[in-house]
Design a protein around this nucleic acid. Structure first.
Lengths: 197, 197
DNA sequence: TATAAAAGTTGACATATATCAAGAATGGGT
DNA sequence: ACCCATTCTTGATATATGTCAACTTTTATA
């Protein structure tokens, strides 16, 4: 059982060089700037209005990103084991963030500061490439989600979620999944019933 | 008048080093891989189902990106003078594109091939950085549009378009603006009347 | 300039989804 | 194990926006 969990959890090291060939020296140096951090369910790593100074890797746990409009809370994305997270817009632009980042479970994180990451970009071409490919990856995800929200009905979006991200149903409360898919919690619940899930 | 047009049209060279300090040698080399291309209104530079091999810079003209769902045509973005364009997802992944790219006016373009760009990434750290920052830039635009579509009513989206991209009203037929904002052409027309534009 | 084709407008009507409200189920903390 | 708070469900009702269809205006073409 312990072994299974181990297999399911890519390490920071593995994730960093998932898409890039990275010289061992460089990787060691890069790794040394990521510092561990543990937070508990309900804590925030980021709040709207503040400038974000860190970028995160989630080794274990679930994070939710959302913003508030007219008092309503709208989820824009979730992070699970083995993925990066953070208020990336604010981290890059140094402007106040639009988003909150909340732990939906206890989390084991690593993080790197803005200045350290820039140091790494300057120092290592491999890290520069890592950054390019990382930006590329989120771009794909965003593009996918945009098309999803833009061009499908609530029912189709619900079906696609079931098909493509069934794990989310387990990990994330439905009201958040609903707002992520751009529908009310009630509509989500009715679709759920209809699909007799 | 000629001068005005000149001022309003950033050159490829200016655009390439807009966000990056680029060594003159490197810039010269990089520039030499971008080849000019002219197309006329109505032509396509990219079609859904095909793998895209080029990435574009629009020196002059307007391009529209869209996809087709259930026979309906949905705009996902527009490119004007001085910006990059292309079926970027397919260009990067080498999978068949989901999008069409159509010239809404006669266009003067430059383009670079996938293999040449990768050559440049390998050869020059400055270009690698250019790529990272470029990916970052589209990421912001996408993120912005996503929030726009997700969290505002048709009326609010229409108002924001007027406020933030008034030039689009001039350059792009309304039926395309409507689908870009995720509403029917009729709804767009009614909002337009309401705002007595 | 004439004619056809495309784009935009407007009204009547249909409908998916939101909102409101009340009750049922679930889950965390003591 | 119990209780309180949160989340989820379900029904009734409201509404924004889509769809269809006819008409007008604009743009393209010969």
């Amino acid at each position: 059982m312990g072994l299974f969990l181990f297999l399911g959890m890519p390490s920071l090291k593995e994730t960093l060089c998932k898409n890039v060939e990275m010289n061992n020296e460089v990787l060691r140096d890069f790794m040394s700037y990521w510092h561990p951090l543990e937070i508990t369910k309900g804590e925030f790593i980021s709040e709207a209005g503040k400038v974000e100074n860190y970028f995160y890797y989630v080794e274990k746990g679930v994070l939710r990103a959302y913003f508030i409009k007219d008092g309503q809370d709208r989820s824009v994305g979730f992070t699970y084991d083995g993925d990066y997270s953070g208020a990336y817009d604010s981290f890059l632009t140094r402007k106040p963030s639009l988003f909150y980042l909340e732990a939906l479970t206890d989390c084991k994180l690593y993080r790197i500061s803005k200045s350290d990451l820039e140091l790494m970009y300057d120092k290592h071409k491999d890290v520069e490439r890592w950054g390019r490919l990382f930006n590329q990856e989120i771009l794909f995800k965003k593009g996918f989600h945009e098309i999803n929200v833009l061009s499908y009905t609530a029912e189709e979006r619900f079906e696609r979620l079931l098909r493509e991200s069934p794990h989310m149903i387990q990990l994330v409360p439905q009201k958040h999944l609903a707002s992520y898919l751009g529908m009310s919690a009630e509509t989500f619940s009715r679709l759920r019933k209809k699909t007799k899930l």
